[in-house]
Write a protein that binds this DNA or RNA. Structure first.
Length: 259
DNA sequence: ATGGTTGGGATCCAA
């Protein structure tokens, strides 16, 4: 089973590039972030015509997540538990019914800039809630993954120029400590289980020719419970599509599971 | 240190 995560930076702007990529790679499941539209305006029929079930958790103008799945989805939940007052659409989860059922969580973790400030406080508070959701997923002792745009550069090797990110909300010590606290519960970073070393990025800024200079960062991740990591066959970043017409600033990352 | 670009939708905010 092939599961992908892709921050598309606006479904309206990616209405050609996204279907093109889906037809090419044929993921069974695609977790989308930053759809930037409300549920009613999401062009679900485009994806239903391609054989996908569609579950959306949208928001006007900002954020918004969705799940596309060729396999049936059960027990869909919207919103990360832990704060009734949080109205950002950044979390959706469901159980994918394949050979082996997999709980998949699609997430768009807050960017957090500028630091310091309310946006950074919100990021850290959100990561605290993520920690608790991860703990519960692990307690279930079943195959589960949390994937999406984490807005976290885990290590210096995950940035082409780590020095310029030193005080950024994506890389500063407090952010990385919060990330490690989640991972250290016993989750596997799927990409790092398959690949080592630098020069693996999932995001290149639109500005200052970042793509042409390969000034990238790796911020789109899969974290897996042990029962899911045991099924891991492969994990790849489709970096090439960043160089196409009208790209998102993120590229897809996907895993192949023996499920 | 600064400025560079894209998306959504409103004439600016978020990234």
């Amino acid at each position: 089973m092939k599961i992908a995560t892709f921050n598309i930076n606006g479904i309206k702007a990616r209405i050609n590039a996204l279907p093109d990529w889906l037809r090419e790679r044929e993921p069974d499941v695609a977790l989308l972030q930053e759809i930037k539209t409300v549920d009613e305006a999401f062009p679900r029929e485009v994806f239903e015509d391609m054989g996908y079930n569609v579950e959306v958790h949208g928001q006007k103008s900002f954020n918004g997540v969705a799940i596309l799945s060729k396999l049936p989805l059960e027990d869909v939940q919207r919103g990360l538990p832990g704060d009734e007052d949080d109205d950002h659409a950044r979390w959706i989860e469901a159980t994918v019914i394949g050979e082996k059922p997999i709980r998949v969580c699609g997430l768009y973790l807050p960017n957090g800039n500028p630091v310091p400030g309310p946006k950074y406080d919100y990021k850290l508070a959100w990561m605290e809630r993520l920690y608790h959701r991860a703990k519960d997923l692990l307690a279930a002792e079943e195959p589960a993954l949390m994937a999406g745009d984490y807005n976290i550069i885990p290590q210096p090797e995950d940035a082409a120029y780590p020095d310029k990110w030193r005080e950024d909300a994506l890389f500063r010590l407090e952010s990385r400590t919060a990330w490690r606290r989640v991972v250290n519960l016993g989750l596997t970073d799927a990409f790092r289980a398959i690949h080592q070393g630098p020069d693996h990025y999932s995001f290149w800024d639109y500005q200052a020719g970042a793509w042409n200079r390969n000034d990238g960062i790796r911020i789109d991740h899969f974290l897996m419970t042990p029962q899911c990591a045991d099924l891991l066959l492969d994990c790849q970043i489709d970096a090439e599509i960043r160089g196409r017409e009208k790209p998102s600033d993120h590229v897809p990352v996907w895993v192949d599971l023996a499920a």
